[in-house]
Amino acid sequence: MYSKVAITGMGIISSIGKTVEENFTSLTEGKKGISTIENLETIHKDVIKVGEIKLTNTELAQLLGLSSDNNYSRTALLGAYAAKQAVQSAGINAINEYRTGLISSTSVGGMDMTERYFYDYFKNEAVQKYITAHDAGDSSHKIAEYLGLEGFVSTVSTACSSAANAIMMGARMIQAGKLDRVVVGGTDALAKFTINGFKTLMILSDTYNTPFDNHRKGLNLGEAAAFLVLESDAVVKEQNKKVLAYVSGFGNANDAYHQTASSENGDGAFLAMEKALQLAKLDISDIDYINAHGTATPNNDLSEGRALIRIFGEKVPEFSSTKAFTGHTLAAAAAIEAVYSVLALQNNVVFPNLNFQTPMEEFDLMPQTTLKHKEIRHVLSNSFGFGGNCSTVIFSKN
């Protein structure tokens, strides 16, 4: 029988802060991290805005105490930094004391290194180590290695729902008695590959993204990493752990509608939310805040909005997309938004949906546009990805 899984630690680095505290301050003070590109050479540099972390790879490596000849991709650097924070936040001093796993997610992987060194691969043996860091699993193993974790390691890559599925998988492994605790989350760095790809799809905005606005022009890509520590009831009790929140429900579905677009009626989103509510044994009236996927693309916001109405009817809870702060961080999106969901629970706040001006003409839905203080017991977080990958996680106070 399913029971809730405790969250005992979390760590994050994004364009609005390199700690949990810095991210919370930015969210409550309306400080967005959307800017022009500085750390990446691209022909689109002056055309688009992104949620870029203003630290170079060298600076990140120094923060991690890595040698200058390391072959960590930017994805791995960001991931190791956030995962270490999460483990420290959970008060874990002996990472292998219990059956501990890592489930990390990414879509970019080591693409930033591949782009830089691909053409020199056969000419310069010294750069070959960077190409071997290309695959998605390499970043997960680098993070595990950095943490000193010797147990189960897995990688999830289901586009923009990846980290939500990592959280689900970790919770299920604890419930099945396979692991005692799991570090779960996601990490993705900006790369020319993703910038060019989204540019080709014509869904990048040349200005600040405006989720759920009738005149939305598209998304801002971002980079980030975030991880949560999930622990079993037995470990929490044995170590008298402070619990930050609980994973109380989750669901995933695939509407099989299109390679990149969501179903116009939000079929996958509807099914994911429905499953999560059923698993959590919650009524629609129990949800106090929705951290929406809200990418500010024409298709996503219409699809998600319709799905919300199908689930909640005329009583859609207060909702907002925090992507106006961070940009869309792809596989890391559900992880950073999990941290934001826990912060909402801890501080009883609904974060604002920045840049919103005009309601969408297709339905009467208004996101929360200012910081609001209220009692929050349950937060529903949506993450929807290419290929119809739709996932929902519900976080609860107790």
Rank of each mutant, 00 (worst) to 15 (best):
G79T: 01
A144Q: 12
R99N: 14
L77E: 13
D69C: 09
A94Q: 06
K192F: 11
S139V: 04
R116F: 09
D180Q: 14
R172L: 07
M111S: 14
N124C: 03
S162W: 04
V156I: 15
K192P: 02
E150A: 10
I167L: 06
A159H: 10
Y130P: 04
H134C: 10
Y98L: 07
M173I: 02
L78Y: 08
Q85A: 11
T155H: 07
S89I: 14
G91C: 00
Q175E: 11
V182F: 13
S105K: 02
A94G: 00
A94D: 14
S154I: 05
A82L: 06
G109E: 05
S154G: 00
E97S: 14
Y119R: 00
K178C: 04
R181M: 12
Y146R: 05
V183N: 03
E145H: 15
G151I: 09
Y130V: 03
A136L: 14
A90V: 07
A80V: 12
I103C: 08
S73R: 01
R172E: 15
H134V: 10
Y98M: 01
A136F: 09
I103E: 14
S157F: 10
T100K: 02
K123V: 08
L77M: 09
S140N: 11
N71M: 07
M173Y: 10
D69W: 04
T158G: 03
D138I: 05
S139N: 12
N70P: 01
S140C: 12
